[in-house]
Structure formats: structure tokens, C-alpha cells
Design a protein around this nucleic acid. Structure first.
Lengths: 337, 337
DNA sequence: TTAATAAATGTTCACGTGTGCATTAATTTT
DNA sequence: AAAATTAATGCACACGTGAACATTTATTAA
């Protein structure tokens, strides 16, 4: 069924070794025979057996892209941008495997032989166990999106705290004092980071920190909707709300509309991520752009380097967030004048 | 570095064959020795070399999930739902390989040895070349989302035409007569299917087919926005627009808003797909739900069957679309009475 | 107890590729 | 032209696993 180098060898009247060398463009082989062998190989439509090659070379030509999970709590745009980013960097010769960590019963299948390198888009510290496993197996590893204490790991992430701080700052500049927060999934590190940015800003600007202004969500639209309902039902509702991601912001906008209010006129909202839809909501959503695709690209590049040179500049790489101002924030200064 | 069955064999004082059989739970081995061997294997943290195993068993434990492309023209939700659907069916023992066909220079790397089976989420007939290649290599293949003439291929898709027909029907029931269409990417089969549904409905209800009411888009939000601008600028603009996917519908809604009109009050829009956001637009978007995740799940299940039994019931499997009525369609009958 | 049978384990080879070393062919040097 | 050197190719083995066949050990039948 499958054509092997031995078949080619017979036809070319040489040993399989010569064929192997010729196809790998070894300088040991005469140009003449090289050409002849390559021609025969093409004619027979030969393609090497990856498993045999991997077995002898101890290399799998496979890169594993892992996320904490693929469903529940991972938004579509997040997943898609991650894959697109990595995919754009990894060339055709490499295989790209995508899986959720939570789908694994145990990690025995994650071995050095199987993966030349691993990229982890980490959303929660529940995948620390995975990280330790990968480290123990000495597989080159890049962790994205979440700070990891191990200094030996290449770490690429965005500075969420600063991004949120900037967002709250914008609210304050526009005259807001009653600023609420809708939080992300509780055990996700990103949720905590963003909450800290919120609190830090409030402290710096000497605003009170109110428990009732911090409502839990889980990063999906429905939770944003519900959280906003709660906020609107308060005795002293906020005038502005920061949502820990855009999905929840969109849910929140819906809740505001349902209450007969207009975002951008009566109520202010800022989101986080800048997913594609943010530009097309009504009104367009002001949000903190998080460069997920960029993070994935940089991470993939770093992994390729790591697999080659074993570089050891293990400083975490921070990519900056970017406040994208659109129409969902009311300027109270103007309004009251 | 890596523990092999030979290492285990030495420690257990047996041959490597016995170890191999014990770990594969062969009935030939005494329970006693089995237990002993398994214990040693666990202790050494043994895990088999996939490449060696694949080489001898001629099986890769790898399933390839291919899309026409990963970027440009593939929306995030589409990509994400496809992966989630397949992932939920394929168990831990299989590797899931994800790539865009357009990323390949040639298909020499797509071999029977490398993939036990392939799922193609096909968006365009430009991947026919890929399909033929896979067929020629005799790799089990399931094509999703696009009808393929080859009867030997397992084919799972939704009946887009009917879905669109139903949508246009809803417009007409609500008193609309000037109904426009925003088309998807021109060479995508889905674009044509949906356009045919639109035209068929107009013919059946004896409405005129106007060129100026059929505007080209490319499935992204911006193209929907621009297309709607064009429609609104017409001398005799439509009262209702069917958009070939939700992304464009969201862009279109934005254009309507920008023109000072209100969707659901002055203007009617229906989309296609029912992506997560559709429920949260203002007003909530009426749309034709396309079961992408379901299609992917069914396709993956079919592939697993195909890999085992070589089933040959090659009837295309149609999953029905579902009109989800929300608030983006105006009832002109009520309005005028 | 011995022969016949069944159960358990071992020997050897195959899968397809790449590489160290040996060998042969071609070229250069003297 | 013969010797020394270099270029080109072949031989044999390794990678880790699984399976057909051979062999040994345990069990049952006579």
C-alpha cells in the first residue's frame, strides 16, 4: 500500500540508505543520483512515514495547544483567536493539536516524545497540575495569559490590572463616582487581576469600596445580564459599570435596555477584551483591548525558539492592553453643565 | 530517559513480550504476573511510545479536523463551535489535529498513516482538491456543512435553503413585500444555498426579484454594515432584510441605527446561524438557527463508525434549521391597522 | 506415573527510517 | 602508473512495540 524508501531503492538500483540520504538532501550523494531518486520518489508519490521517522529521530513534529477547557467558560472568540494566532506562526511541517486540559483524566499521554513543545493558554490555576507535569517531563513549555511563579517557564501575558485601572480612570474623568464591577469566573486568575485593578483605582482616587458594587459573574453573557439586573435594583445604583469581559458587557447592556435606559445616554459601561462585536453594539462599546491573538503569536514564536536554542531569558513578557474609546460612556461633566 | 517495556521486563524477570501483553491486558498472561508488571510500570511511570506503536500497528490515533481556512471568512463562533462539537465526541485516546486547508502548499503530508480519519468542515468548493486527495489516499472522510456529489462520502449538513425560505415566509406573514438579501462570500456554497432559498420564496409568493435588493457581502460585520448602507440609500428601500449570517446582521443593525431608524420598530432584519450574541443585541435578533455544534458532533460520531465498521449508508444527513423568533421583525399588519 | 493437553512465557522478526562504520569507486598526488 | 586521498554508496543495526511461532511449564486424562 504505502511506498517506502526500499521500493524506491529497488527501482533506482541503490540501497535504501542512499535513498534516505538523497531525499534528505545529504551532501554525501552525487547530484546525479539525487535527481534520479527524487524523480522516482515523485513518480511513486512517496511520502515518508512520520511514525518511523519520529521513532528514530525522537521528534514528533507536533505542538500541543492546550486551553483550560474548550467549552464552558471559554468564549468562542477567545478560543478562535488563540488558535488563529498560534496557527499563523506554526508552519506546515508541524502538527497542531488542540485540546482542553479538563478533558483529560490523567496526563500519562502527555510525554516528551509526543510533543516537541506545548503552548498553554491558561485561564485558571487549576491547571497548575498540568504545568508541573509538563515541567517534569521536560517538554518545552510556554504559558500564556496567566502569570506563573516558576521562573523557568516562558510566560506571555497582558497587564490586565493596568488596563482596568485605565478604564476606571476614564469613568472618573467623565465625572462618575458610583462605579460598579461585574466580576469574571471566581477561580480564574484573570478575574482577580481585573478586580485588583478596579480596587486599586478606587483607592487611588479616594472612592469608597462597596461590597454591593462588586457582583460576581462567570464571563458569559447571561451572567452579565443578571449581574446588571442586581445592580440596577440597588437602592443607590451605580452610574457606571466595568465588566470583566465584553461578553458580560453585552449582557449588561441588554439589561440596561430592558430597564428602559439607554447606554451611552443614561448609563455607562466599559468592557474588556475588544471582541469583534464590541464595535457593532448599540452604542459601540468602550472596552479594554486585550491582544489575545498577539499573545498567542508571540507565545508560539517563543516556543519555537525554546525548542531550538533553549533560550533562558525567562522574564515574563507583558503585552499592553489598550483602551478603545467608543460610545458607551456618558460624560457627566457635560451633561450637568 | 524514556522508560521502555524492556526496562520493565528486566525488573520483572520476564521477556518484553510478556510485558507488552500484560499491559495490553492479553488473556494469555497469568493474573499474577500481570499485576506485578502493571505495578512496576506504574512505579516507573511508564507510558508507551506512540510512534513505535503507531509504526507497528499502522494506526495513528489521530483525527484531523480541517476547515477551509482558519482566518478570513471563518467567524470565531463558527470555528469554536466546530471544535467544541468534535472535541466532545472524540475521546482522550485520540489526538485532535486542527488546521486550515488554505495553509497547505500541497497535500503530501496528508497520508493514511498520519490520520486514522478526517473531518472536513467545508465552506467552499475550493477544497474539492483536498477531498479528492483524501479519497485517493483512502482515508475515512466525513464532510460537514456542504453537499458533495461523491456518494461514497459521509455527508452531514443543514438544509439552509429551507431555513431561509422559512425566514422570508415570516417576513411575508408580517406584511413585508420589499424584502432584500445580503449575501455571503461569493464562492462559498452556503451563500448560494441561502440565496436560492430567498429567490425560491419570492417566486412562490409571487414577489418580484430585484437585482438591487441583492447585495453582496463576505460574512463579516463590516460587510453587513456597508451592504445595509447601500440598501438604505436606494430610491425605494426595502422594509425587511435577510442577512446570510448573524455577523452581517449585526453590522446591518448598526447601519440602521446610524441612519436614525430602529430595528424592530421601523425596520426588520433576520439573520442566520444563531450565534450566542443574537439573543443579546438590541433588539434581540430573529434568526435561523444552524446547528453547527450538532453537525460537528454527528459528523465525528459518523467518522468513528466509519473507521470501525466501514458503514456504507452514504445518504447525506440533514439536520434541520430552526427559526428563532425574537424582536427584530416588525409586524406591518398591526402597525398599519 | 506417564502421556496428552492446555496454559504461560520466550524467541525472533517486522514496521520504515536514519546513522556509524565499512567498502568500493573516483580523483588527485607523486 | 602506482599510491594516497577523497567521494560515493552499501551494510548492519537501532528506535520501541506487537505478533506469529516455538518452547517451556502446569494441568488434566489415562
Amino acid at each position: 500500500m504505502g511506498v517506502t524508501i526500499k521500493d524506491i531503492a529497488k527501482l533506482a538500483n541503490v540501497s535504501h540508505t542512499t535513498v534516505s540520504r538523497a531525499l534528505n538532501n545529504s551532501p554525501l550523494i552525487k547530484e546525479n543520483t539525487k535527481r534520479k531518486i527524487i524523480e522516482i520518489a515523485n513518480q511513486l508519490n512517496y511520502s515518508p512515514d512520520v511514525h518511523a521517522r519520529s521513532l528514530v529521530l525522537q521528534k514528533s513534529y507536533t505542538i500541543g495547544l492546550f486551553l483550560t477547557r474548550l467549552s464552558n467558560g471559554t468564549s468562542s472568540s477567545f478560543l478562535a483567536e488563540t488558535i488563529k494566532g498560534v496557527n499563523s506562526v506554526i508552519d506546515e511541517n508541524y502538527n497542531l493539536y488542540v485540546r482542553g486540559i479538563q478533558d483529560f483524566q490523567d496526563f500519562s499521554a502527555i510525554t516528551r516524545k509526543r510533543f516537541d513543545g506545548i503552548i498553554l493558554m491558561s485561564q485558571s490555576d487549576i491547571d497548575n497540575a498540568f504545568i508541573y507535569h509538563v515541567l517534569e517531563k521536560e517538554i518545552p513549555l510556554v504559558v500564556l495569559n496567566r502569570q506563573v511563579e516558576e521562573r523557568s517557564i516562558v510566560n506571555v501575558l497582558s497587564n490586565d490590572q493596568e488596563g482596568v485601572y485605565e478604564a476606571i480612570n476614564l469613568f472618573i474623568e467623565n465625572g462618575h463616582r458610583n462605579i460598579a464591577l461585574i466580576e469574571g469566573t471566581s477561580h480564574f486568575r484573570s478575574s482577580q487581576e481585573r478586580k485588583e485593578g478596579y480596587i486599586k483605582a478606587l483607592i487611588d482616587f479616594k472612592l469608597p469600596i462597596l461590597q454591593e458594587y462588586m457582583v460576581k459573574g462567570n464571563y458569559d453573557m447571561e451572567s452579565g445580564y443578571k449581574a446588571m439586573k442586581k445592580l440596577l435594583a440597588l437602592e443607590n445604583p451605580p452610574t457606571a459599570v466595568f465588566c470583566s469581559n465584553d461578553d458580560m458587557a453585552i449582557g449588561a447592556m441588554k439589561a440596561v435596555n430592558d430597564a428602559g435606559l439607554f447606554v451611552g445616554a443614561d448609563f455607562s459601561i466599559i468592557g474588556f477584551d475588544d471582541i469583534g462585536f464590541s464595535e457593532y453594539t448599540s452604542p459601540a462599546l468602550t472596552t479594554v483591548k486585550r491582544p489575545i491573538e498577539k499573545i498567542s503569536m508571540v507565545g508560539a514564536q517563543k516556543l519555537l525558539q525554546l525548542m531550538d536554542d533553549v533560550i533562558e531569558e525567562n522574564e515574563p513578557i507583558y503585552l499592553t492592553t489598550n483602551l478603545v474609546k467608543r460610545q458607551s460612556v456618558v460624560d457627566l461633566n457635560k451633561k450637568n453643565s
